[in-house]
Design a protein around this nucleic acid. Structure first.
Lengths: 235, 235
DNA sequence: GGAGTATGTTGACATCGTCAACATGAAAGC
DNA sequence: GCTTTCATGTTGACGATGTCAACATACTCC
């Protein structure tokens, strides 16, 4: 089947499961979400169309495997964004990292929140990977509370608000909802702007936070974002 | 073909386009997003499998028609939520209405942000319906600024932050990301909570907003402590 | 070294989106 | 009134997909 290989491939692949996951991620990146099918992944690896069934059962299993890898990559990106920064800047960087992840891997991002995985409790590993990614955010909020830059109490509720914001922004950006509305600001900048909104509040009229925000809003103040490396293939 | 009707149906339906859109919405509500196909919609209406092609061209056209109806319904819900309330409570109610819309019509919600509609500029009506829904939020923010409960300036940026938050929360709820993380609070309550976070800010430590928030959060005597007992197994 | 099992292949089936060719009937032109 | 035109709907077909059953191969463990 495979065009690229003429020599007799061994009957057993060795690590077909891993190869199929990597191929799926590549397909998502190169051809979009609709192009990922059990057969297309099998084709890319060079195995028969029914081979994936042994490893993933059905299409949902393949999506789940991709989503697990995605959540782990996201958790890692969030962790790296915070590390080495103070609590507040770390949270801003994490927000930007979340959006950047979605923009750079829209296919994987969509797979992670694909409707077929709605009842993901069936796949404990996926449940755990998702929980771990969220935990990164909670940790960031707790650290910010310890540093005195976020009000104490209800860390989980506040994390959820923050998560909702970054997830919504990422989703809107990925689904191209920001275009055609006169919004030209890059999503990553919007992430930083929204993070400031969240910190300072939209309703503190005349308060110190508003003055701080105005001061920050002066042009030429945007941090040169650190160019981040490409995604790693290992997982 | 239709099981429900034996009498000779007229060759021409009359308003097949509208009937197909309504059937699609019903399918989305009753059977989920994956069940909506050109053929299933045609079956439900009782026409041949290729009839939808005359009205929608391809599958994307059907999704676009459903999404247009969805955005109009969402805009209406947002408008009604704000009307009759003061600026701040109106925005809170709008946030809850957004989440409620998604929870009550998850299929339509997913169709509105379906990947196949990513370049929706091809369908001007969809572009306009989406814009109108967003405009409802901007109007709410502007009204809140006029009422003095939101800081002045950059109404669009602030609307975008608010939109990102409600859209993210709605998406997470629809995709069942809130389950399995120890989050039992209903999404509508989370919408109101997050709206308060957005108004007051998460970072105004010791400020007036924090005191207001504490006052609101304490029905009895319990002083909010930074006691996060969420995670019990993750380490 | 043989048995049992995990891993891949082949072929089949129903369903899907899409197309081309055709049927029907309403609207428009004369 | 009659015909022409064309939007609307049907039929049949095609390739692609997910999934299954039957079979082939090769690894592992006793």
């Amino acid at each position: 089947m495979s065009v690229k290989n003429k020599e007799p491939r061994p009957y057993h692949h060795g690590d077909l499961r891993q190869a199929l996951v990597l191929a799926s991620i590549a397909i998502l990146k190169e051809e979009g979400a609709t192009a990922l099918t059990l057969r297309s992944a099998a084709r890319r690896v060079g195995v028969s169309h029914a081979a994936p069934k042994n490893h993933f059962g059905d299409l949902r299993g393949l999506f789940a495997a991709v989503a697990i890898a995605g959540f782990r990559g996201l958790a890692k990106a969030l962790h790296e964004a915070r590390s080495g920064r103070d609590a507040r800047l770390g949270l801003v960087a994490a927000a930007q990292a979340y959006v950047r992840f979605a923009m750079e891997s829209p296919g994987a991002f969509r797979a992670m929140f694909h409707p077929v995985l709605a009842e993901r409790s069936i796949v404990p590993e996926l449940e755990e990977a998702s929980r771990a990614a969220f935990a990164e955010l909670v940790t960031g909020i707790v650290a910010a509370q310890a540093a005195g830059v976020v009000t104490p109490g209800d860390a989980e509720g506040k994390s959820l608000t923050a998560w909702s914001f970054v997830h919504g922004l990422a989703s809107l950006a990925v689904d191209a909802q920001l275009t055609g509305k006169g919004i030209s600001t890059p999503p990553e900048v919007l992430a930083a702007l929204g993070a400031q909104h969240l910190f300072d509040g939209l309703g503190n009229v005349g308060g110190a936070a508003e003055k701080r925000a105005m001061k920050r809003a002066t042009p030429g103040k945007t941090r040169p974002k650190a160019r981040t490396k490409a995604k790693k293939e290992s997982a």
